[in-house]
Structures are given as C-alpha cells and as structure tokens.
C-alpha cells in the first residue's frame, strides 16, 4: 500500500475511535449539555476524519476540491446544529448537572 493509503487508514481508524467514544459519552453523561459535548463534538470529528481520509484517496483534483467545499460547509453546519439544540435546552431552563466531586476548583468553593 502507498503512503497515502496508510494515512487514509489512520484517518478512518480515528473516525471509528471518535465515533465510538461519542456514542459512549452520550450514554455516560447525565444531562443534555454534557451529552451534546460528547455527541456533537466527537461526531463532528468522526465525520471530519472520514472526509480527510476520502480527501487523501481522491482520484483527481476536481473531486478533491468538492470534498474541501463539503468540509467547509460541514464545519459551519455541525456547530450550528448543536447550537440549536443547546439554545432550546437553555431556553427551557434546565439546570446544569453538577458532579459530586469537582475537579480543578478552589478549596473555598468546595467547603460550601
């Protein structure tokens, strides 16, 4: 296999890893905001990795240019989608999930 194909393989493999982790995160986190972090962000990266892999395997320049355009549109549309869900959740007034043991917080805050 050529170097290009190995790189594409790495991109597809990372897509599988990110996609699976996004799925696990959707079930592990308790509230919609944190779930959206996992589902939206890791889903975006998984799809983006697939695009990069297919960009590496593109047969000619015209196809590559189209894939780049699709990538740019996807970079705009994917965050907008999770923004719409997030805004709706925020408008309904759902409080944010607070884990029992917090990381990176000052001692004063922990005493409260």
């Amino acid at each position: 296999m050529a170097v290009r194909e190995w790189l594409a393989l790495v991109a597809f493999a990372s897509a599988i890893i990110f996609g699976t982790a996004g799925m696990i995160g959707m079930f592990r986190f308790p509230d919609p905001y944190a779930r959206m972090h996992a589902g939206g962000l890791l889903g975006t990266t998984a799809t983006f990795s697939v695009f990069i892999g297919s960009l590496l395997l593109a047969p000619d320049r015209a196809t590559a240019a189209r894939i780049v355009i699709i990538m740019i549109f996807f970079l705009i549309s994917a965050p907008t989608g999770s923004y719409i869900v997030g805004r709706f959740t925020w408008e309904t007034g759902l409080p944010v999930w607070k884990p029992k043991k917090r990381r990176n917080i000052t001692d004063k805050e922990q005493e409260k």
């Binding site: 982790a21 972090h37 970079l75 607070k98 990381r103």
Partner: peptide, 26 residues
C-alpha cells in the same frame, strides 16, 4: 481554517479522555 481543524482534534482528544475518566466540572 487550519487553526480550527487543529482545535477540533485537540478538543476531541480532551473530550475522549473526559468520556472515559468522567472528570468534568460543568
């Protein structure tokens, strides 16, 4: 555009770690 792609992968790796360790403070 390139900076954003770098951010995307950096944030996904952070998120990957958070999904498995569960160490978050939202």
């Amino acid at each position: 555009l390139f900076i954003i792609i770098a951010f995307l992968y950096q944030s996904s790796v952070m998120m990957l770690r958070a999904v498995f360790t569960g160490e978050v403070s939202p």
